[in-house]
Design a protein around this nucleic acid. Sequence first.
DNA 1: TTGTAGGCGTTATCAC
DNA 2: GTGATAACGCCTACAA
Lengths: 346, 346
Amino acid sequence: MPKQSSTRKGQFATSARMRDVAKRAGVSTMTVSRALNEPSKVSEEMRERVLSAVKEIGYLPNHLASSLSSNRSTTIGLIVPSIDNSIYTQTVKGLSDVIRQSGFQLMIAESGYDPNEEEELITAFLTHRVSGLVLHSAEHTPQAVAKIAKSGVPVVENGNIPEKPIDMVVSYSNWDAAYTMTMHLGRLGYKHIAFASLYSVHNDRSRDRLKGYRAALEQLGLDYDPRLVIETSRGLSSGAEVVARVVHSVPEVDALFCAGDVLAVGALFECQKRGWAVPGRIAIASFDDVELLRHLSPSVTTLRLPRYDIGERSARMLLSRIMDGAEHFRGSIVDLKFEVIQRESA
Amino acid sequence: MPKQSSTRKGQFATSARMRDVAKRAGVSTMTVSRALNEPSKVSEEMRERVLSAVKEIGYLPNHLASSLSSNRSTTIGLIVPSIDNSIYTQTVKGLSDVIRQSGFQLMIAESGYDPNEEEELITAFLTHRVSGLVLHSAEHTPQAVAKIAKSGVPVVENGNIPEKPIDMVVSYSNWDAAYTMTMHLGRLGYKHIAFASLYSVHNDRSRDRLKGYRAALEQLGLDYDPRLVIETSRGLSSGAEVVARVVHSVPEVDALFCAGDVLAVGALFECQKRGWAVPGRIAIASFDDVELLRHLSPSVTTLRLPRYDIGERSARMLLSRIMDGAEHFRGSIVDLKFEVIQRESA
DNA sequence: TTGTAGGCGTTATCAC
DNA sequence: GTGATAACGCCTACAA
């Protein structure tokens, strides 16, 4: 004789199970499962009986159980360097839009630009059996890479185009973007182009932007002057400091390329405070086309990066790997390019 | 004779299981489980044996299985109206910081200001057996509320202080904030105070801000003029439009309270474009103390809201309900207050 | 089209 | 302190 109910103690109100639905509908649990997940494999009458039983009981499927049993989950893990950085939110939105449509859920965590923390998060996501990973950073611990490989979970890196990708990549090239903007400034006639970015420690995006800047200088036949390169932290004040420092050490500076929108705005404000013409005394260029830059006066020349598209494509590729087993995406590198937005500030 | 390996087909490489660790360490799975989760209940020798076996094999626990078996999960669901709104990111950061420390993971989704979508997301989270929910909106479908109640999952609402809370609340009062700022403007001597906010359809925060504004007007003995109230969409351009519309319909307007930082910035830019003194021709006040407002010229008077703290406290209360079963938090309302930041623009 | 049997990987429970 | 056993709720595989 079957037990009427479990004697195990649980902290939650015991919710209705599939077997309760089955009993109520007078069918087996398999029919319930099929009616819910593969409706076409069930006769219409059964389907209706099951669905009304589901409603009457208020049954909510248990995804933990179904994932465990079917060995497939519907969660995707996303790791960003910093959650309160508006730059990523567009990408997150792109991911979220696509993922939700397919009934997947996003687990999000922040690494704080620390590869060891990233590794811990990857491990945590793997224990949660995410079916895919999205990593913004391209810098990982060897252990993290090894764990991912061992798990077999598909991965998209989407903050940069790494030299040695783990698996798939959907991004623009930070090197290329910085190179292009620097070339653009050079062609506009600027001769002493300063470069400001966030600290490049554990930040491959910053490093690649610096490299692109240097490559462009070389191409332009301009000397590289380390006094013109400044790394700093996020914030409008940092942008202001950059102007102060660079003008102090190299008075003949005539352009400032800020590899970060917040820095650029801070720099512009500082110039305005000093009563400098932008451009004129100094030109300013930014990175990322946030709405604000278009509305400032002078409007700020910048790079438009495909932030939303990166999220969207990342999600699509990941999902086709996960759902359709589309192996041809394995190792794909998608370079989504960017655009120079010429405005008044340079 | 035990099977050597499963014959089931799965899409993933079969990862090591607890039983593999157990075999390697020459113990039972229960000892492995204890060594991992309740180390104090296992002898030191066993612990070491198990842990080294774990390392050698590269074992990653399966959270799905453990959650299913123990009937407790380590995920928390968060629903925000819009993922690409920088206002929430601070709260998300506060939540994330606390939650991560306790080994929990955050599932995040966006409702797009749609209660029906919110209900679907709540349902989805419930099927994933989240152990807690954080909702930014205070407006829910009755079905959503019923499902939550039935599930027994603890909930925090944190975008507003609702009249009829579902369970716990950690927020500031939108009514109070708008009331306070309007009173502030009134005391500064402004007589024709306009009010701009985001559309209030399915946005209880906007609605309460409007009510607070009206209550303050009454308190100040100022007439309510519907032409001075404008609802619009997000964006700097919307802020500019607000200025145009309100000045056109009520030329004697002398202050504009924008219940949204982006609107305020857009409004200020428009005034500058028109060459108006701020304040003087018109004063501007904002909502939320984003860094930019302090750096603009004139710097913008605004409200400092405890965005990060809201996330932090929400997480703490949720976790103590979940982990310690601290029932005294059930139904708690925490009003975290706010601060008027007086600057130059008003 | 539907049902039966058994297992997914872990933990609660109880015996030793 | 450790282990054997039976769930947890669902789905794969196979049978009817």
